[in-house]
Write a protein that binds this DNA or RNA. Structure first.
Lengths: 197, 197
DNA sequence: CCGTATCTGAAACTGAGTGTCAGGCTAGCC
DNA sequence: GGCTAGCCTGACACTCAGTTTCAGATACGG
């Protein structure tokens, strides 16, 4: 196992280049529109070859969405870390704070990114796809919390619904240009589900 | 308005060709795998040109998913048709019977299609995207039922959650090879949300 | 019978993503 | 310090999806 995930000089350099490329790409996308920008444009703007750009981000979309990589694991871990006697909705709600964090740390940047994603069909679709893969991870975490191996149908549904709460809350937050309180919106979304009506 | 949506001879012929192309495409996809089949293959197998194929289905995915076209409208209409005093979850649940219908009429075919879609990432993603666009339609219908113009956050969340119920139920139905009762699964999914736990 | 609208196939084009390969840079080793 | 092995890079060729254009065929209404 010599190739283990040991953070060496090279990895740090790679991460820095990656961040730099993402930054350049983001600005270009905002200015010109995601679809108008070709991989050649990106490569030229970043001063690297097309090949290199594609080596850092497998797809054009990932230059924007790569930042969310690994969130599924983080949220699932947060969920597992919740007290075992907490009910599922509450646990899910708190696990999502992991995601919300990013929006607290850099509201303006997050808002810009979110806006770009939501107004670009290709990005929207790709993000939907990524987030969809969170559901099994969350359902699995719920199952483990309950001491079972496989998630039940109910657990899967609740995991999915929790993600919807996040998305709808984000939609409303974006629609308000970040003026509304994201935490309050998320709480309201969860209440909409828990209260039977 | 001579170009109105009048069902004439030509439209019927078009629909027949479309169905024929979809059928050929489906069989090829099942046999070879969605990704292995190129547009040229499809055109050759169907005995038309690549151009023509792409005129009937804008994308390769639509050759499979085109069957679901317009479902959002149908479900939303079904939702609007529910009694005004019915609570939102119940109304949503019944509106989804519109979708379930297809699975009752042709369980075997639906199962095959569903299996192809779920095991092909590209199809899965595209369907996710399409279904995502149902949410606003359902939320809008909920709003109208409640006599307001714009859907509330709560209505959007509930619309989204209802769609999750459908998806999770379908997942379990597929996992059981169609042996479990889809209606029962869907009911169970809705119960998972309505019961607070 | 004629003009017109529609459908079709051919072909050229753009752009995303993949695979290959050779040269260059760097880190570790003698 | 020099050397070698491994990684990164850029160049290039390739496949395939999807768009656009155009010209010929076909069917339809007057």
């Amino acid at each position: 196992m010599t190739g283990a995930a040991r953070t060496n000089t090279r990895d740090i350099a790679r991460a820095a280049v990656r961040a730099e490329l993402a930054q350049v790409a983001f600005e270009l996308f905002r200015r010109e529109g995601f679809d108008k920008v070709t991989l050649d444009d990106l490569a030229a703007a970043a001063g690297v070859s097309r090949s290199t750009f594609l080596r850092y981000f497998g797809t054009k979309e990932d230059a924007v969405l790569g930042a969310f990589e690994g969130q599924d694991r983080r949220v699932a871990d947060a969920l597992r870390a919740r007290p075992a006697d907490e009910d599922q909705w509450t646990a899910l709600r708190h696990a999502l704070d992991t995601v919300i964090e990013r929006y607290h740390m850099d509201p303006a940047g997050s808002l810009e990114t979110l806006r770009l994603v939501r107004e670009t069909p290709a990005l929207c679709a790709r993000q939907l796809e990524k987030q969809h893969s969170w559901r099994p991870a969350l359902a699995q975490a719920l199952a483990e919390r309950a001491g079972s191996e496989e998630p039940t149908l109910a657990q899967s549904v609740r995991a999915a619904a929790a993600l919807d709460c996040l998305n709808v809350a984000l939609d409303h937050w974006l629609a308000s240009d970040g003026r509304l309180d994201l935490v309050a919106l998320l709480d309201e979304a969860f209440r909409a589900i828990q209260r039977p009506r």
